[in-house]
Design a protein around this nucleic acid. Structure first.
Lengths: 241, 241
DNA sequence: CGACCGGTTGACTTTAATCAATTTGCGTGG
DNA sequence: CCACGCAAATTGATTAAAGTCAACCGGTCG
């Protein structure tokens, strides 16, 4: 990988993995050049945090590679994960004073970071970008609302089944091969058990018990701690309701 | 529909109660005239539905008066309320194919309705409106994420306490009188017990028991089924965590 | 090798859901 | 105006689900 300097001087956006999926997708080349000038790439290691809940909102970012976790805490110290961000997702709070949640990399990751003030100005001057951002925010709102249904009305089994199905989708290799419905799929979980518990509003013990139960029932296999194989997607979908 | 005609011919927006708070706030007068031409007012009775989950998204709307409920169903028939919309809030899914949730009036209400296609076109041509819509959507996303914390990590008591405090804020009379922190506040609940249960991800029995418990402990009073008096806001805030 | 961390498992407790009566409040019609 | 019927809300008894507390695996790393 080249140094940051060369990343800035040449236009990295043009070759960006998410050039056509992120909010910058609709920008013309000259606009991309401008955006390129105010953003910079940053590499994150798993576990590294880039935004802190309650802080002044000075940064916004785009996820290029890896999985990020958005979370908040209850006053008694329990964590609730508010969402996960995958490549092409947007992070942070434009047009706002404070960051409403903490953001941490779950895997090694690449992000494209902007000073919020720069980004806000650019967005206001480029309606096409703002439009993309709006579309993305609306989608995110829909996704979050579906998550509310999960948290409010599902039991532990339904929660975990839904989580596995969604994660399988999101972690699917980019080649998008349309495998048959009943071909076993194996993927690496971007989250440890405790984090899965935090996503689903459960405890680690309950998550663990559900995993072993699903394994016993032949729905999934667990080749290693961080890997899952979906053996019977249909049955999982039934349980996810 | 003659009524509609006259509403259309004069500019209703200019005198609209939410002219300065809704997404139209930043529009110039000539833009407002254009917007006025594509929207129309609609009166809703309590219980009336205006959007259906899964339908083609043909309408979007602004709440002018009253309280609306956004909700979805689990396949086993339980309802989960995804949010409530108060005056100046925006309803529906611009730039999308299907409506992601059902919308029903909880009280008698007024809304300002647009054909989605008209609205989408207008928004794309008027960045200031789109910007306002973006800000509002971002706020709504923040609010929804906070709600996730409630659903995922709070117990019944914390949920109800949070709900009462938030509702008190939102239902506060428009005169915005800054009452002291410990002055009892009485307001009318826009929701029946079952609906409160659906908002909080609880059952009606649990909600009822929490109400009576809080009353016994002197935190609140219940002058009638639909009314609540907050007697000790501080103590409620403690319980809401 | 032993300590340690993440995960699993078991025993027990707590919370809220469920099931089942009542009770309350309210509108309707005699 | 009162009696009736209905829906909403409350209350009680019981059950089920998930949380808690604690012990124990099993890799991994120093």
């Amino acid at each position: 990988m080249d140094a940051t300097l060369s990343e800035r001087s040449s236009n990295f956006c043009q070759a960006c993995a998410i050039r056509n999926r992120a909010i910058c997708a609709d920008l013309a080349n000259d606009e991309i050049d401008l955006l390129n000038a105010i953003g910079r790439r940053r590499k994150l290691e798993a576990g590294e945090q880039i935004l802190w809940e309650g802080d002044d909102a000075v940064l916004v970012a785009n996820v290029i590679e890896g999985v990020m976790k958005l979370s908040t805490q209850t006053s008694d110290g329990k964590e609730q994960i508010l969402g996960l961000a995958y490549p092409s997702d947007f992070l942070g709070r434009p047009f706002g004073q404070t960051t409403p949640y903490g953001v941490e990399a779950l895997t090694d990751a690449h992000v494209c970071v902007f000073q919020r003030s720069d980004f806000d100005r650019f967005a206001r001057e480029h309606p096409r970008l703002e439009h993309k951002l709006l579309e993305r925010t609306l989608m995110e709102l829909d996704r979050t609302r579906r998550w509310m249904l999960l948290l409010g009305r599902m039991n532990a089994e339904q929660k975990l089944a839904s989580f596995l199905l969604e994660t399988a989708d999101r972690m699917a290799p980019a080649d998008c091969s349309f495998l048959g419905d009943d071909v076993p799929i194996t993927f690496t979980l971007p989250l440890a058990r405790q984090q899965i518990a935090d996503v689903l509003g459960l405890t680690i013990e309950t998550v663990s018990r559900q995993f072993t139960r699903m394994k016993k029932e032949g729905l999934i296999d667990l080749p290693s701690r961080r890997e899952v194989t979906l053996l019977d997607r249909g049955a999982l979908e039934d349980r996810a309701v």
